[in-house]
Amino acid sequence: MSFRATVLTLYPDMFPGTLGQALAGRALSQGTWDLQTVQIRDYATDRHRSVDDTPAGGGAGMVMRADVLAAALDANAGPDDPRPRLLMSPRGKPLTQKRVRALAEGPGVVIVCGRFEGVDQRVIDGRDLEEVSIGDYVLSGGEVAAQVVLDAVIRLLPGVMGNAESGETESFEDGLLEHPHYTRPAEWEGRTIPEVLTSGNHAKIGKWRRERAEELTRERRPDLLAPRKDDEGA
């Protein structure tokens, strides 16, 4: 059974977007995964097809209505649907490779693309939406973020990458950034490939790669080396 992705959005024409190209696009055409887009506005009940309203308590912007979004969810991912439900949100828990791999091992995912100032909290609570963020910045909507999540997940599905080992040695898989890479020509603009990589000694190569990965992580992402609460069971 293929991995099923359902995306609820006000802009379904933005999909598959980048997901229709390269690895993800090939996997989509081969049936490795399936994409369903849902126009949230189709579940509005007034003649204007309204999906948002002014925020309770006042303030700028508009808020996506709970009743309309809930109706869209219920019609396309009912209570018996085993797939996790993600809401792309800048206040969500940061997406990690660990979460991506867990999603790839499941039956699929339901993704809600937020817009406006946010989504009514009642539908987040009432429909068990897991808020997920792809970074500490704000986008105009959740569609691009949803494509990021799906791209990260789809490439880990069985058969999508030609070499399964590629996905096991990348950044974040073992808590470190990935080591530097080199290829031909052996010399370029006076810069040469590190001698150990052409030595044929796989033990030394593995040691060098590990040391460079640790060095890069210390320099660029020391936060990855700090103990995490989820890893400690807290």
Score class of each variant (00 low, 15 high):
residue 194 P to V: 15
residue 94 P to D: 08
residue 125 D to R: 08
residue 85 R to G: 13
residue 100 V to I: 15
residue 6 T to S: 06
residue 163 N to T: 15
residue 53 D to L: 03
residue 215 E to G: 09
residue 104 A to E: 14
residue 39 Q to Y: 01
residue 161 M to E: 05
residue 100 V to D: 06
residue 183 T to A: 00
residue 46 D to L: 06
residue 45 T to H: 02
residue 152 A to D: 06
residue 86 L to Y: 12
residue 202 H to K: 07
residue 218 R to A: 11
residue 69 L to N: 07
residue 84 P to H: 08
residue 148 V to S: 01
residue 226 A to E: 15
residue 67 D to I: 15
residue 226 A to S: 12
residue 119 V to N: 06
residue 91 R to Y: 12
residue 112 V to G: 00
residue 37 T to G: 10
residue 47 R to F: 02
residue 3 F to K: 02
residue 219 E to P: 09
residue 146 A to N: 02
residue 45 T to E: 07
residue 99 R to S: 05
residue 223 D to Q: 14
residue 53 D to A: 05
residue 157 L to D: 03
residue 213 A to W: 00
residue 159 G to R: 04
residue 36 Q to N: 08
residue 38 V to H: 08
residue 81 D to G: 09
residue 75 A to H: 08
residue 216 L to K: 14
residue 71 A to N: 02
residue 221 R to M: 12
residue 132 V to K: 08
residue 35 L to A: 13
residue 87 L to H: 04
residue 230 D to C: 01
residue 62 M to S: 03
residue 123 V to E: 08
residue 207 K to H: 01
residue 132 V to Y: 03
residue 206 G to V: 14
residue 224 L to R: 01
residue 17 G to Q: 10
residue 123 V to R: 06
residue 80 D to A: 09
residue 2 S to F: 01
residue 124 I to R: 01
residue 57 G to A: 05
residue 230 D to N: 06
residue 151 D to P: 02
residue 28 L to C: 08
residue 112 V to K: 09
residue 107 P to I: 10
residue 110 V to M: 00
residue 156 L to W: 10
residue 159 G to V: 13
residue 165 E to G: 01
residue 123 V to L: 02
residue 149 V to S: 02
residue 150 L to F: 07
residue 133 S to E: 06
residue 177 L to R: 04
residue 197 L to V: 14
residue 90 P to S: 13
residue 114 G to W: 11
residue 77 A to S: 15
residue 100 V to K: 04
residue 195 E to Q: 11
residue 18 T to D: 11
residue 134 I to Q: 00
residue 61 G to Q: 07
residue 12 P to E: 14
residue 56 A to W: 10
residue 111 I to H: 00
residue 47 R to T: 13
residue 121 Q to K: 05
residue 213 A to H: 05
residue 40 I to T: 11
residue 120 D to A: 05
residue 48 H to L: 07
residue 79 P to G: 06
residue 151 D to C: 04
residue 180 P to N: 12
residue 201 N to E: 09
residue 78 G to F: 09
residue 120 D to E: 10
residue 170 E to P: 02
residue 206 G to I: 14
residue 50 S to P: 00
residue 23 L to F: 10
residue 58 G to K: 00
residue 147 Q to K: 07
residue 219 E to D: 13
residue 6 T to V: 15
residue 193 I to E: 02
residue 124 I to D: 09
residue 113 C to G: 04
residue 70 A to V: 13
residue 90 P to Y: 11
residue 135 G to V: 10
residue 35 L to S: 09
residue 16 P to H: 09
